[in-house]
Design a protein around this nucleic acid. Structure first.
Lengths: 348, 348
DNA sequence: CTGTTAGCGCGTTCAC
DNA sequence: GTGAACGCGCTAACAG
């Protein structure tokens, strides 16, 4: 009876290093060395250990390693949102770069809540991770303090700003937004609006870029801005565009905080028979696949999110090998992808 | 000099349980109990410990806990792909359900490769996770063997099938596909094609549903199927639709393996002046936000991915509290969302 | 209600 | 080249 119970999800011990050692006829430490510093072990011993590992399907216990080394092989990833597809590409970069390494990825999302972020950072800190990737540059003072004393490289991604904790990899959101708005102006649009959803800090900086560019072109009066606290989505974009047209019927273009909203705006125009780009120019941000695939294609700002993910991990791996990376701000830039949704001036 | 070096990412020890105990003037074990089984500790002692924890900002070391308990607080999540947005909602459910619990989420993706899946499952097994969520029901025999002996609940999500390892939560993909195709037939479409990308097992079963439904309606000759090995995307959908129209100019509808492809198909029709739904019906799968926001809206099959994520975690939490869940297959069903892209018969 | 003892699996000293 | 001893921080058994 008692034995039946113990079978219930009770951990059946998998092979330990000592099992490997016994099977190979060596001491535990020799087995350990054979795996971690093979060059210090006689080739023949090394081979016996290798065979034992294979035969037993030995995989080291990460908890024991972490405890003994005071350092785990976890790379923590903190993102503000999972639904937002921009983070999907970042994650792809992170996952690809982690593949084939002995590191594991642990995730958490803050939902753009400062309190949650602090709690998460604290939780990660307790794990002595190999590194931490944070998809934001807007940490609270408390979070920043913990991150600074983390004892491992902290990489802030998506965006760059003035004071990196360790490393920052991203692009200047304000400048990128300005480039998009500048393009609209160059295409002859004059009454350019802004559509925004869930105005997180990154969105705020895009809005700032929009405003700056209009100001420097003398087109800032009046400012046609419409935002909603909801998270962005195609359906939200439609509703925003509908409201925007009601509020600013004279507008001739919109810069959207991202491609989801832009696509919604495009559909709303389509359903009203508003011609894009002739009567209404639409520009987005992020250059998701849907912007490229739309008809007409949606002009958008491409940022290099996949590369950010890869480089963030690369920096952590480097630090794990003992080379402490210099605090650095790495600007990966952006590219304006001009497509049919804003091409009003003859392209020839 | 040596001290300078030791400062470099050397772990500065955070507060340990023993520090808490000393500060509270009790033994380590009392402190431990105060945190884990408060009811067994005198209220006043409990309070002293609580204050010490707060003052020191104590967070338990998960590695040490995992080692001592032979069980970690990690919930492993294995998904085939990160770019595919269907997994985003699953993850949202998983993350939401994990919030406020002492569990961490660890992720990995298989890229639909059997070998990678085996390796990952093995790696997770070494961690003695609290549970494992696998977004697939197509495990290789080797993976299955490891999963079966995992010693923790294994939840297969997204789809249901005949032989659950422990728990399966999802919906019947074949039936769901049939429902969509049946709807097309009911709307009067007769020459219905199938557009597919990266035909993973789940996609294969949708294709099977498509075929079964056409067969039972006597419309299976000829079968108009076009697929590509690329991962699905809006741009891919456009190309598929273009090729499909060239190959089957007589077709009057398409059932697309997912909404990304369906949206691409819709755009391709728009760019050719093909009227949807009059001349061409389009149905998708997953009911992403973009399907709802499109113009016309895209008819799609809604599956309850968020709920799957939540329930998967819930089952693991339950098991962690000692109640071993019965092996079970939980069918969350699906809903056909009928929208403008297929509404050909007068709706009044 | 509280404390003592022992060990989880591995890595880091040191010796040999 | 190899091995013995000890400790990482915590928890599970027992005592008291």
């Amino acid at each position: 009876m008692a034995e039946d119970m113990s079978e219930i999800f009770k951990h059946k011990q998998r092979s330990r290093l000592i099992d490997v050692a016994r099977r190979a006829g060596v001491s535990v430490i020799t087995a350990s060395r054979a795996l971690r510093q093979p060059e210090l072990v006689a080739p023949e011993t090394r081979e016996r250990v290798r065979q034992a590992v294979e035969a037993l399907g030995y995989v080291p216990n990460p908890a024991a390693q972490a405890l003994a080394m005071a350092r785990s092989r976890v790379i923590g990833v903190v993102i503000p949102s999972v639904t937002n597809s921009v983070f999907a590409e970042l994650l792809r970069g992170v996952m690809d770069a982690t593949e084939g390494t002995p590191f594991h990825l642990q995730f958490a999302n803050t939902r753009y809540q400062t309190r949650r972020e602090e709690e998460l950072v604290r939780l990660f800190a307790a794990q002595n991770p190999a590194g931490l990737i944070v998809a934001s540059i807007d940490q609270s003072p408390a979070s920043r303090a913990i991150l600074t004393g983390m004892g491992c490289p902290v990489v802030q991604v998506m965006e760059i700003g003035p004071e990196p904790i360790d490393i920052m990899i991203g692009c200047n959101q304000t400048e990128a937004a300005r480039a998009a708005v500048r393009h609209l102006i160059e295409q002859g649009y004059r009454r350019i609006g802004f559509l925004g959803a869930r105005m997180d800090p990154r969105a705020q900086r895009r809005l700032a870029g929009y405003r700056q560019e209009l100001e420097s072109a003398g087109l800032a009066e009046p400012l046609r801005v419409l935002t909603t606290p909801e998270p962005s989505a195609v359906t939200v974009g439609r509703r925003l565009m509908a409201d925007f047209l009601a509020q600013y019927p004279e507008a001739d273009a919109v810069f959207c905080v991202n491609d989801d909203v832009a696509l919604g705006a495009l559909f709303e125009c389509a359903s009203r028979g508003l011609r894009v780009p002739r009567q209404m120019g639409i520009a987005g941000f992020n250059d998701l696949d849907m912007a490229q695939g739309a008809e007409p294609g949606i002009t958008s700002v491409r940022t290099h999110r996949y590369a950010m993910g890869r480089q963030a991990v690369a920096a952590i791996l480097e630090a794990a090998e003992g080379r402490r990376p210099e605090p650095a701000v790495i600007d990966l830039g952006f590219s304006l992808m001009v497509r049919g949704s804003t091409r009003r001036m003859g392209g020839a």
